[in-house]
């Protein structure tokens, strides 16, 4: 085997580490994308019985965003098995307890059920903020593109930019601002 072919072999079967920034991302839409990388479905050599999945590092899972009033409408069911021990935890309550759980459950669910699921989940690394250990950071070679643009907060924009932004409304002549005391 020539050197070129050997490197080609490593590149084909080596596990790539991807990073995904979850800030302002819908966890359920993101899970569908992340699952493809975890299973290695983006590779031409993909086969369900071929162990070619990649690692995915999800950072800022505390900053995930849910649409509308879903924080209060989505419930997570749990049952310990004992009588009358069924619990329904709202998404925001679960997220306050564990900021990684919603992301983890979303990916676990969208992986689909087979015996490989638990092993595939081992290649997922979740971090609630951007503090990632250096040994994990050293492996990362690719970033997965975010699905939604991160909105900019008004108080994070420079006052100069706000002042010089083109205006599409001017106050009428008889407009009276709130009385200055």
């Amino acid at each position: 085997m020539s050197i070129t072919q050997r490197v080609q072999q490593w590149a084909t079967f080596g596990r790539v580490w991807h990073v995904y920034d979850c800030s302002y991302q819908n966890p359920f839409d993101s899970a569908k994308v992340i699952v493809k990388y975890l299973k290695g479905m983006q590779k031409p050599i993909y086969h369900p019985m071929n162990d070619c999945g990649d690692h995915v590092v999800c950072i800022n899972t505390k900053q995930i965003a849910l649409p509308g009033d879903e924080w209060t409408k989505r419930a997570y069911f749990h049952h310990t098995g004992y009588p009358s021990s069924a619990t329904w935890t709202l998404a925001w309550e679960l997220h306050s307890k564990d900021p990684m759980m919603i992301m983890k459950k979303a990916i676990y669910r969208s992986l689909g059920g087979n015996l490989q699921r638990r092993h595939t989940m081992q290649r997922l690394h979740l971090f609630k903020d951007d503090k990632v250990p250096q040994e994990v950071l050293d492996n990362i070679t690719n970033q997965i593109r975010q699905l939604r643009p991160v909105p900019q907060r008004l108080d994070h924009i420079d006052q100069e930019v706000i002042d010089n932004f083109p205006k599409i409304m001017d106050y009428p002549e008889d407009y009276l601002p709130k009385a200055i005391k």
Binding site: S23, Y24, N26, Q63, I64, A65, L66, P67, G68, E70, W71, T72, L90, A91, W92, H95, R148, P151, R153, D155
Partner: peptide, 17 residues
């Protein structure tokens, strides 16, 4: 003024359609 200091579910990020 800081959304992260709001009470309950309001402190988490959300978006709208």
């Amino acid at each position: 003024k800081d959304p992260e200091k709001r009470y309950g579910f309001k402190k988490f990020n959300k978006y709208f359609f």
